[in-house]
Design a protein around this nucleic acid. Structure first.
Lengths: 261, 261
DNA sequence: CTTATCGTTCCACTATGTGGAACAGGATAT
DNA sequence: ATATCCTGTTCCACATAGTGGAACGATAAG
């Protein structure tokens, strides 16, 4: 683990400011300056540069800075390139309608998974774009386990070691042996479970998708989906009922995908 | 119009590479290098820096570069901060259900408008995030005219002069006098029309929203919404019918917003 | 009125980014 | 199999481009 440096110093500072503004919203110069550990003057130049390029704007009277929608535009371009979302979405929507629960669609990115789509259950009025783009480790999500179950022992080991294992709930799996045993269960069932391992009060059922957009990735380790259900609505019997829908969705998507190639 | 320079040279290059990758997807180093007009070596350092920060990843075998979802994550954070979307969404959804047509929600940003939300008509299976974040000039959109109608003559003039007026369809308004006359119509009707002025075959009905999240902005010039309808489904009679729903939505949103403050 | 705080500008210094050149690995052509 | 062309990658001397201290102006707070 050699601690490489950023090949361009200012780059780290520019994106540091960008990320700070994304997280905290409208902010003062000193606030950003302090957070980056930089001189007021240096920070000002950095923010001015972002403003010059149209990523940041300054409130006329308060003098505070905030992000424009330029970054949202870039994000949209990236999302529009993901044709797979449009293909899979109708199936996920159907799953949501069958179960009445929220459905997530994720993609592997290194040792993490990224939410790339979401079909919200009707009763919740949260908007769809909410979590999209956010990341999560493999080891404590149903989708992660579903994908890991298709990997070789070596690949699983690498993944485990690349992750920072943190116990975020009492049920989080923090032992490698136990994780491997859980993967065995996944292989036997065809679907993966997350029993409040990531968030207390939420159980998930996930399945991998044997599809690949890129020949370099091994099928079954690139995309996965899951339904998230509050514990109150998810006893053992409902797990059995819902897992049926999940497995049906898995095969439907895989068939549709392969016939369209 | 003084041609200022970017206070940080590399910043322009970093974001130039980022934008290129967003637009073109997976690209080779030489391709980016040529587009930026930079030395191979310089480009390599720039892309490596983006990779170091997690915004870019390199395909293991092809050696080509592409964006990660990091940028989508930032975008999500920005969108989640826009509480207004969650407040307005239910009304726009209702409007879509009443009319069966696609509804857009936009925000002013300088001399342009930005799409910040969209409720797609059921028959279309395009996904929601599609255009979000993309920009459009004021002068040739229903939403832009709806907002401009609430501005002073001076403000309208400034807006017109800040825009690059381009005739994109035979109906595009490219004359300032004519634009002002159109605004008069908007004030009389309470809603704005776009008769294929931006895209041939598409008519829009838009209305401004007298709400403001920021005291610095004048109400009625910050947010607006519209419905977009193919010309085949939009004769004069249907305009009258749909404009009723649009106006009803406008007042409903404004009431809900003011009572929630 | 005084004091504190924030955003902005200036400028001398040198750390930092630059790009030519040389290298390494594949793919394609000969 | 060998040569020729592409890639992407590393190295390094040079000077350009970014740095941050200090001083300024404007606004808000005491």
């Amino acid at each position: 683990m050699t601690e490489d440096k950023n090949p361009i110093q200012v780059a780290g500072r520019l994106f540091g400011a960008l990320e700070y503004l994304a997280e905290h919203g409208e902010s003062g110069l000193m606030e950003i300056s302090e957070h980056l550990g930089l001189n007021k003057s240096t920070t000002h130049r950095i923010v001015s540069s972002l403003q010059y390029m149209g990523y940041v704007r300054q409130s006329r009277e308060s003098g505070r800075y905030e992000l424009t929608f330029r970054i949202v535009d870039l994000s949209s371009q990236v999302m529009n390139r993901m044709d797979i979302i449009g293909i899979v979405r109708p199936f996920l929507r159907k799953l949501m309608e069958q179960t009445g629960e929220t459905v997530h669609f994720v993609k592997r990115e290194g040792a993490e998974i990224v939410y790339i789509d979401k079909v919200e259950a009707y009763q919740n009025s949260i908007r769809m774009v909410s979590h999209i783009g956010s990341r999560m480790p493999f080891y404590r999500s149903a989708v992660g386990k579903a994908m890991a179950a298709n990997m070789t022992e070596q690949e699983v080991r690498d993944l485990w070691e690349a992750s920072e294992i943190i116990r975020v709930t009492p049920s989080t799996i923090v032992d490698y042996e136990e994780f491997c045993r859980a993967l065995g269960q996944v292989r036997a069932n065809g679907y993966a479970l997350d029993n409040e391992e990531n968030e207390t009060g939420v159980r998930c059922i996930g399945a991998s998708l044997m599809i690949s957009s890129d020949a370099s990735e091994k099928p079954g380790t690139e995309y996965a989906f899951s339904i998230s259900v509050p514990i109150s609505r998810m006893d053992e019997e409902r797990v059995r009922e819902l897992s049926g829908y999940v497995l049906a969705t898995k095969t439907a998507v895989e068939e549709a995908f392969h016939s369209s190639r």
